[in-house]
């Protein structure tokens, strides 16, 4: 072994000892700071001190370049990077905490979730961002009516945007189209924006809806006509329903029979609706996942031939019944 190597070796040994000692010292100071930061955040000066020590250490290591075995050198660099990262984390945890730990906590609870401990279990901290109770009452619903013509005026007072649920109706016409189109004299000018639709248990009904800004989920319809636009359409356990749809994805049916699909009627579409939105779509029947065509629905690309006279005006009694009889699909229609 030559003398040069010898001196290098002894340098590397002393360097390693010193370097590791100062690294451990720094590491424990960082650990102490981050531990105490749970109680009180470390002062920026303290963090600054830590990063100065780290900078010094980095400099010593850089100075020793060439005199250290390259493997060791790499190791030390990695260790320093790790330290740098912990200081960075300390700094990051320091800044937001002092800012909103107390003041903004109720509003920013969602943000504080980010820091939730990894193994909190059966009794998780509930984020405190529960909206005021009023929020749940803004939920729109039309329920339990028969032989009625229902418009926006029959909805409970509501915000301009809401999700809508329609349930338990029979022999009803529901018309929630913008008032410019429907001749019903509803005095409400702001267009109703429906963000999702849930419909359940309707029989012998006509439902006229504008574009729903979300998905439509429909269960248990019988002898109905549904007109709507939506992002997604799912219909379950329904039979004898005519669906006039404006949609950009594939509508699906499941456990359904005698369903007829057609594009959204031009006569009811708002001027904003483009041709593209009235384009035809591909129906998927989840009860018939085969190569053969599903027997449960038919597609009517020929557009709105079934109905040309939509019941846009409020009617009642005898007239309502006549309108329903005229529009609603009958078993005999299906044979055609």
């Amino acid at each position: 072994m030559s003398t040069v190597d010898d001196s290098n070796w002894s340098f590397s040994r002393t360097f390693t000892l010193q370097f590791q000692a100062s690294r451990y010292a720094l590491e424990s100071r960082i650990a102490a700071a981050s531990n105490s930061s749970k109680k009180s955040s470390p002062s920026p000066e303290h963090i600054q001190e830590l990063s100065i020590s780290l900078a010094k250490l980095t400099k010593t290591l850089a100075g020793a370049t060439g005199s250290l075995p390259s493997y060791d050198q790499k190791q030390y660099e990695l260790q320093l990077k790790e330290l740098e990262r912990s200081i960075e984390a300390l700094r990051a945890s320091n800044v937001p905490k002092s800012k909103f730990a107390f003041k903004r906590r109720p509003a920013a609870a969602a943000d504080t979730n980010l820091k939730s401990p990894p193994c909190s279990t059966q009794t998780p901290l509930q984020p405190q961002n529960a909206p005021p109770p009023a929020a749940s009452s803004t939920h729109l619903s039309l329920s339990s009516h028969s032989n009625r013509y229902l418009t926006r005026e029959d909805l409970p007072s509501h915000l301009a945007q809401s999700d809508l649920s329609i349930s338990d109706l029979n022999h009803c016409i529901v018309n929630l189209l913008p008032s410019a189109l429907s001749s019903s004299s509803s005095g409400i000018d702001t267009p109703l924006v429906i963000s999702a639709l849930h419909a359940r248990k309707l029989s012998d009904c006509v439902v006229l809806l504008p574009d729903v800004d979300g998905s439509a989920l429909i269960h248990d319809l019988e002898r109905c006509v549904v007109v709507l636009g939506c992002h997604q359409f799912r219909m379950h356990a329904s039979s004898k329903v005519d669906v006039y749809l404006s949609i950009t994805s594939n509508p699906i049916i499941e456990h359904c029979q005698e369903i007829r699909f057609a594009p959204y009627p031009r006569a009811l579409a708002s001027p904003l609706v483009t041709e593209k939105q009235l384009a035809s779509f591909l129906v998927q029947d989840f009860s018939h996942i085969r190569a053969t065509p599903s027997p449960n629905y038919v597609m009517n690309d020929g557009a709105d031939t079934h109905v040309c006279n939509w019941p846009l005006a409020t009617v009642s009694g005898e007239e309502l019944e006549q309108a329903l009889v005229r529009i609603i699909p009958h078993p005999s229609d299906q044979e055609e």
Partner: peptide, 9 residues
């Protein structure tokens, strides 16, 4: 994001 959706609680 939907108005009137149920809270997590």
């Amino acid at each position: 994001d939907l108005q009137g959706s149920m809270t997590d609680t």
